[in-house]
Amino acid sequence: MSPTEAIPLLIVVLLMISIGGGDVQDMSVTFEGDNDVEALADVHVVAGGTTTVPENAAVDGDIYVIGGTAAIDGTVDGDVTLLNGNISVSDGATVTGAVQTYSGSASVSPDASVGRVSQFEAPTPSSSPAQRVGGFLLQFLVLGAFGWWLVKRHPLLFENVGAAVTDHALVSGVVGSLGATTLLVLFVYMAFTLILLPLAIVGLFAEFLVILYGQAVFGYLIGTRLPIERDGVATLAGIAVFLLVLELFGIVPYLGGIAQLAVAVVGFGAVLNTYFGLQRFEPVTIPGGT
């Protein structure tokens, strides 16, 4: 695992420790090789290789696995969390806290003593039609309320961003993809400094809100093409159609995902290019054409 690959998962670990009130200053990480541990720092992260708590050893602290293997043969007085890689808790081993699995492969022997075993189940959108409809309605309500409010109070904002989407889709796409990627990398590295972690979380949330703003604009644009006179209702209907189309994209493998991504970056770029709709985007005029 290279540093660039390890960084996102290490940040997740840092976030989990911070949220749990732990001390991130006292943390150790192993990246490769076979390591037997007789004592632990408050938090130990396994990013590669194999880390073993031997049969007769008793260690005090939490273990996070983001790559490689953690083999618990002795006693861990704390939690064991698996984000990626493997863990095995063998016969006679003890984990006083919880063994939590988010992703990766966990093997817990029935003869081991474990405080609690939990398995994170990612929500599957296709699990039931009712859940899917519920999720869709929630999205529609949030986006629809925002769209309704904005088109009633500040219709010019939507007009300006909409014009950037329709008249300058390529430019919006380029600026959107550059801006979103650059900011994403920046926020991840800001998070890694720990000092800027709160700012990074706010920044990532703001990026998400800008994408939602872009989606509302797409809904507004569809609404203007529907035979509905009242702006608010047309925008609501447009947003419903847009979300439905996005859902349909999701059914198509690969191309559907690419289309969803393209819509997100074009919307993101259009919002940035127009200063959130405060100014109409006009590209520079280059003289000397034929």
């Binding site: 695992m1 290279s2 540093p3 660039t4 690959e5 990246f31 490769e32 990013a47 290789g49 590295y189």
Partner: peptide, 20 residues
């Protein structure tokens, strides 16, 4: 940043870099 992480965790050195 990658090199600084490698300096803190020397065992990671030599595992190459991400294509990113």
């Amino acid at each position: 940043s990658d090199l600084r992480i490698e300096a803190v965790f020397p065992t990671i050195a030599g595992s190459g870099t991400s294509p990113l």
